[in-house]
Design a protein around this nucleic acid. Structure first.
Length: 777
DNA sequence: CAGTGAGCGAGCTTCCGCTTGACTT
């Protein structure tokens, strides 16, 4: 017999709580939800008042049967799932599935894992809140109806296996609209004027920027002309105290953003590493929307800060969440023990823990006090003036441990260098003035982390779904995370030096380079337009917020759950029916023009992706020619010239050793094909212009490296070889590749030494990083 | 690894939110 059985959602939580509760309590976990809607009939009997059909999924059968056995021999069962809509529903499903006796079942909640909170929860036990459960049920059914009614429409009208949903479709919409915004953006340039001055006695320079920017080179140039004989003087001097406050402790979303900015972690990597830290008891729960810290944590932080930095640095703070949809079932993400400053584990675990520690501790520290000095510098011959800004830290406060990063990748570091002491009216010596052409930039493409932030702002998705949503829209082929090289751009730069000489120069810069940004596919654009056209309500950024409002009303007993569903479903289902009946198949076809011989050039979405097509209008029977669009090319924006160049490949460029050599572009870039062998052209050669001589060189070079590939082999052990690979020599033993220790000549290796190396490294498999390259099949 | 594209039809795909391992490369 068990006196008290406590059921929580997470096994790590169960372990922690068991320690607080003592011998009379047995704590176990449900591993999240234990039941879900069935897949048949979409899991909902619509005609029967939206009656849900639940089943225990295969991977939960074991958990449920274990819990059944335990609960049957327990005196009291305490349902201690999370204090939110989903947690309440899990408790209800547990009560149903385990057949719990109401009189022996108690619902308890605590949103921080401290002994005090748990003891208090037990004192204030209650029953399962049915209205909150109805609210979850309505949420679940609505999502099922939206997803399982719209997705099949996409299969019929666009492409098989696509998907739509309340969350993912809006995520895709954000990315599509951002891409179009960038397409439509017209960059304008202005001349920004910066200058370097010196005071008469000081060695320290003053960097200043002009109050105005000039529209064109002529105006910039005439300004510089007039500066030639101008006098520069300090017209005003202003000192202002400025305060900086620390950011609140981490939530899931802010942790994902910061880890992305500071360490370039993907959101799924961040969650994986955080999970490890949580499971080993280093941090609190990592899926949370709360910025709350327990009173105990606040007190501990104050203690650590006073000990480490001095009492004057401590400033206990209680943060309030700004989000209206936050459910705050957990604390913010924080270190379990502040005295643990470093953790054992992988490099990534160390980094992430360090970030969490610093962020949390900084949030409990005093504001930083700065003094900002602004100097205005007059130009005697012009009305424009220069300003220079400097900052001095008077009290560093929280800056001692942590400063949040900014999303703006190339924001110029704020000029917070110290300024020399100047007085009003003082004359300054001009060292040089530069006017450089600067271009305006469109909004930045989303990264995984900035997309999460946007979704959170819109109240769409939950901490547990941010990472999975991002992987879903990539898996469906709507979005690709890509790097783009950017391109060269010329700009003008005029400089006036101290001797009065003006030099004009053409300079160039790289712009538009992208790293790990989310790009929409052609399918995403077509699906998005189709959905906005036919299901505008679902795609509305405010749809989720409106649903949340109604779910709140259900939770408060002000609205009946299936009436809410009926009001939503009737018009929704109408639009599904209407779309199936009246809407055309989406092909995204565009006619670009004609090729020199008069053939019609079109692009469209075909079975294997976007293609360009050449059709002979005089001979409709002739088979059209096809060519796939290259990565980065899009149906919407491809030009006639770009489409035509796709048909220039494959190119037969000649014969080598009596076999034809042809050039084409494959998944891994341009390649030459000769005698059924493939040779990558690499970056140095343009597939449209490369000649036979170059290709022969490439073929011969590859043959040579293949000859040199085999460094050593052994008669006694045919599956062991020493080879020359892409990254230098290595040992190949069967299917395993083994590194050669530094300082060892690969030619000198003996079989015994190799066997020893195999024994040392064997069994320790390095987890390979999954990478998907290019266009998905 | 390096290439597909007609049209028909069968059979499949799909949602969001709560949790961890168990799989392979």
């Amino acid at each position: 017999m068990i006196k008290n059985l406590v059921i929580v959602e997470s096994p790590a939580k169960a372990k922690t709580i068991e320690k607080f509760l003592g011998a009379d309590y047995h704590v176990v976990s449900s591993y999240g939800h234990i039941r879900d809607l069935t897949r048949k009939q979409n899991g909902v009997e619509i005609e029967n008042g939206f009656n849900p059909l639940y089943e225990v999924p295969a991977d939960k059968k074991q958990v449920v049967s274990d819990l059944k056995k335990l609960s049957a021999k327990s005196e009291t069962v305490w349902l201690a799932t999370d204090e939110d809509r989903e947690g309440e529903a899990i408790s209800w499903h547990l009560a149903e599935v385990l057949n719990l006796d109401i009189s022996k079942t108690k619902r308890i909640v605590f949103n921080e894992i401290t002994k005090e909170a748990i003891v208090n929860a037990i004192k204030t036990a209650r029953r399962v809140d049915t209205n909150l459960v109805y609210s979850q049920q309505a949420r679940r059914i609505l999502d099922r109806l939206v997803g399982f009614e719209i997705s099949p429409v996409l299969w019929r009208k666009v492409k098989s296996s696509l998907s739509a949903g309340r969350v993912q479709s809006v995520a895709v919409r954000l990315i599509v609209e951002r891409e179009r915004e960038i397409d439509a953006f017209n960059s304008e340039s202005k001349f920004r004027v910066t200058a370097l001055f010196y005071t008469r006695d000081a060695k320290k320079p003053i960097r200043a920027e002009l109050s105005e920017k000039f529209d064109n080179e002529k105006d910039a140039s005439s300004f510089l002309e007039m500066c030639r004989d101008a006098l520069f003087s300090v017209s005003s001097l202003e000192k202002k105290p400025v305060k900086k406050s620390p950011a609140p402790p981490f939530t899931t979303s802010t942790l994902q953003q910061e880890a992305s900015r500071k360490y370039r972690f993907s959101v799924s990597r961040t969650m994986l590493v955080a999970q490890k830290l949580y499971e080993s008891g280093k941090i609190t729960y990592m899926r949370t929307d709360s910025v709350n810290l327990s009173e105990q944590a606040i007190a501990h932080a104050a203690q650590i800060i006073s000990d480490d930095f001095g009492k004057e640095y401590s400033h206990p703070r209680r943060f309030k969440t700004k989000s209206e949809t936050a459910q705050e079932a957990h604390e913010a993400i924080r270190p379990t023990y502040f005295e643990t400053k470093n953790v054992e584990g992988s490099r990534e675990e160390k980094l992430l823990y360090d970030l969490i520690w610093k962020r949390t501790v900084a949030s409990q520290m005093k504001d930083a006090a700065l003094e900002r000095t602004t100097i205005k510098i007059n130009v005697s011959t012009r009305k424009e003036y220069f300003t220079a800004q400097g900052e001095v830290i008077k009290f560093d406060g929280f800056l001692k441990v942590y400063l949040e990063s900014s999303d703006d990748e190339d924001s110029q570091e704020e000029d917070n260098e110290m300024l020399p002491v100047v007085r009003e009216g003082e004359k300054l010596n001009m060292d040089h003035i530069n006017a450089s052409e600067r271009f305006s930039r469109p909004s930045a493409r989303y990264t995984e982390a900035t997309l999460v932030r946007k979704l959170e702002e819109l109240g769409i998705g939950r901490p547990s779904t941010y990472a999975p949503t991002i992987s879903t829209i990539q898996k469906r082929g709507y979005v690709n995370k890509e790097d783009r090289p950017g391109s060269e751009r010329k700009y003008r730069s005029l400089t006036l030096d101290a001797k009065g000489k003006i030099t004009a120069m053409d300079k160039s810069e790289n712009f538009g380079a992208e790293k790990s940004k989310l790009f929409p596919s052609d399918v995403a654009m077509l699906v998005n337009d189709f959905l906005i056209q036919n299901f505008p309500r679902i795609l509305d950024f405010k749809f989720t917020a409106a649903v949340e409002k109604e779910l709140d009303d259900i939770a408060q007993g002000k609205l009946v759950w299936n009436e809410m569903l009926r009001d939503f479903y009737e018009p929704f289902h109408e639009s599904v029916k209407e779309t199936i009946e009246s809407s055309e198949k989406v092909k995204g076809e565009r006619t670009l023009g004609n090729d020199p011989s008069g053939k019609l050039v079109t692009v469209r979405l075909a079975r294997f992706g976007p293609v360009a097509q050449l059709t002979d209008p005089d001979d409709p029977e002739a088979k059209p020619q096809f060519a796939s669009l290259r990565p980065g090319q899009r149906l919407e924006t491809i030009t006639l010239a770009e489409a035509l160049s796709l048909f220039r490949l494959p190119r037969n460029i000649g014969v080598f050793e009596e076999k034809a050599v042809s050039i084409s572009i494959g998944r891994f870039g341009p390649y030459a094909k000769h005698d059924n062998k493939f040779y990558s052209l690499g970056k140095g050669h343009d597939p449209y212009t490369v000649e036979i001589e170059d290709v022969i060189g490439i073929i011969e070079a590859k043959r040579k490296t293949e000859l040199e590939r085999n460094i050593k082999s052994f008669e006694d052990a045919p599956d062991i070889q020493v080879l020359n690979g892409r990254w230098g020599p290595f040992i190949k033993a069967g299917k395993e590749n083994i590194k050669i220790p530094k300082g060892k000549d690969p030619k000198e290796l003996t079989l015994d030494e190799i066997r020893k190396l195999i024994a040392e490294t064997g069994g320790k498999k390095s987890p390979a990083v999954k990478k998907s390259g290019g266009r998905k099949k």
